[in-house]
Design a protein around this nucleic acid. Structure first.
Lengths: 91, 91
DNA sequence: AACTATACCGGTATTAGTATCACGGTCATG
DNA sequence: CATGACCGTGATACTAATACCGGTATAGTT
């Protein structure tokens, strides 16, 4: 095995990431935001639904610009979410 | 063609991106920074040399955290660099 | 019911990111 | 020179991101 498959935690992080993007998209359509970011709507949908859990940096940067989000806050939000659900689930 | 190959501009952006990371690494070794970011040294090398021009978002986020960089500034620097190197070299 | 717009889903094709393996260069030791 | 440790690099193997296609479902309009 030369490339390790994505761990469940990474996929969960991708899901949280997608939720954040979807919230930021608000009422706008996928097609509009995807076009603004220079992506296909399918790619945006995969990212939002967590089916593409680790998108490329510049893809996320373009999306963040189209949505008016901060990359640092975005990454921090995912990291915080990971800690919240990672080892503090039981107590 | 279902996935468009990276354009020369995207590759150039990847090279600028790698240069920024290498500058931020300073005197530290690849092995140390890669370990701090949770990557293999080879992956860090590919990113720094521009052979991986569009790394994953969380890979970049981990690197930025290890190097003390801002993701927003990083993305902005690459975008500005694109404009600066495109038609305004002296800018 | 038909038409339009939006979003979800499975399948498919192609490129690219990431990790492991193997090699050369440098410095310190003997 | 031989050995070992660290650094950077190139080749290779494997998974994932991205895009396109067809089908499905919901909601609004006529």
């Amino acid at each position: 095995m030369v490339r390790v498959p994505l761990t469940p935690e990474e996929r969960q992080r991708g899901e949280r990431f997608g939720v954040l993007l979807r919230q930021a998209r608000g009422e706008r359509s996928m097609v509009e935001v995807a076009a603004a970011a220079g992506l296909s709507a399918e790619t945006l949908r995969k990212i939002e639904t967590g089916r593409a859990p680790t998108p490329a940096f510049f893809t996320v940067a373009a999306l963040a610009a189209a949505l008016g989000l901060s990359l640092d806050e975005l990454a921090a939000a995912c990291a915080e979410g990971a800690q919240a659900g990672e080892f503090r689930q039981a107590g």
